[in-house]
């Protein structure tokens, strides 16, 4: 006799089926990077996206249905016997409802928006972040690790499970620094240093790119982010320190020159290539940088 599914098993069965169906219908495979977060920031942003989408669906789907019903019921057809009220033009109750219901829905989205906007601006307390100074150049990314005193071009390694504080600037037209699986983007701008913290939950390789057009080589502004264990991270740092060449000021100037580049590593970098003073008005309290 076939064993009956326990209610719980049945439940799980339907859930899997629903998810599988949802994924095939909407095509939500892994390529939907925004929907497959790999870190706390991206997860938190995705949760808000889901909440806001559901709230919006609660508005637009009923309106669509009302709209479709109106079109069918009141189309100009000699056979249909809809009411015809050519002068009806106001109803107090309806009007109040029209403002109050959307206001409630907006409030449902607005409150968590404000909360999360503040929350995501702060580094998680008591976790010592790895700091990476990011400079966008035409058309490559230069990364400096002030704590480790090494530098890379177009790739970074970060320890998984630890927050990373990116400090962003540009020695070129603007770009945005975006690693969709880890979290949202932030601009790199000449003369400003903007903070952005992200974290990877698990080891893995994540794609990063620029979201702000910066000229003909802009599509090549991609970089890879390799999240590894803390031990592996330390040994990678050691390896770069011992095997990679150093970066002189002359090397830096040759990197700044317009053009694209592959991955590079440097065991040192010259002082002063990352700005220490800024216009100042865009720095927030969460950055360790001092205002001028």
């Amino acid at each position: 006799m076939p064993k009956r599914h326990s209610p719980r098993g049945r439940h799980r069965y339907w859930l899997t089926l629903a998810i599988a169906l949802g994924l095939t219908v909407s095509g939500c495979g892994q390529q939907y990077v925004v929907l497959h977060p790999k870190g706390p920031v991206a997860t938190s942003e995705l949760n808000l996206l889901i909440l806001a989408s559901v709230a919006m669906a609660l508005v637009i789907i009923p309106v669509w249905m009302l709209f479709a019903y109106t079109l069918v019921r009141f189309r100009d057809n000699p056979r249909h016997e809809g009411v015809f009220v050519p002068k009806w033009q106001s109803s107090r109750l309806l009007e109040i409802l029209l403002f109050v219901v959307p206001l409630i829905i907006v409030a449902v989205i607005a409150v968590p928006t404000v909360q999360k906007t503040y929350a995501l601006d702060r580094l998680p307390p008591k976790k010592d972040p790895v700091v990476i100074n990011v400079t966008s150049l035409d058309w490559k990314w230069l990364f400096q690790y002030p704590g480790q005193h090494i530098a890379t071009v177009n790739y970074i390694e970060i320890p998984a499970g630890k927050p990373v504080l990116f400090e962003l600037t540009a020695d070129s037209p603007m770009n945005t620094f975006w690693i969709p699986q880890l979290g949202g983007m932030e601009y790199t701008m000449p003369g400003e240093v903007l903070p952005l913290w992200l974290e990877a939950n698990k080891p893995g390789v994540y794609m990063g790119r620029s979201g702000q057009f910066s000229g003909t080589g802009f599509v090549h502004m991609v970089f890879s982010v390799k999240a590894v264990s803390s031990a592996a991270f330390n040994s990678w740092v050691q390896q770069v320190k011992t095997t990679a060449p150093g970066m002189s000021l002359a090397t830096y100037h040759s990197i700044v020159k317009i053009g694209t580049m592959g991955h590079e590593s440097f065991s040192s970098y010259p002082a002063g290539i990352f700005p220490t003073t800024t216009h100042g008005f865009t720095l927030t309290g969460s950055s360790p940088m001092k205002m001028p």
Partner: peptide, 21 residues
């Protein structure tokens, strides 16, 4: 309706960090 609803999603600041540009 879709334009407006997705506009509200973009106005949701942390979501816009993922959607901008």
């Amino acid at each position: 309706l879709i334009a407006g609803a997705t506009g509200v999603l973009l106005a949701t600041v942390p979501v816009d960090y993922q959607m901008h540009n």
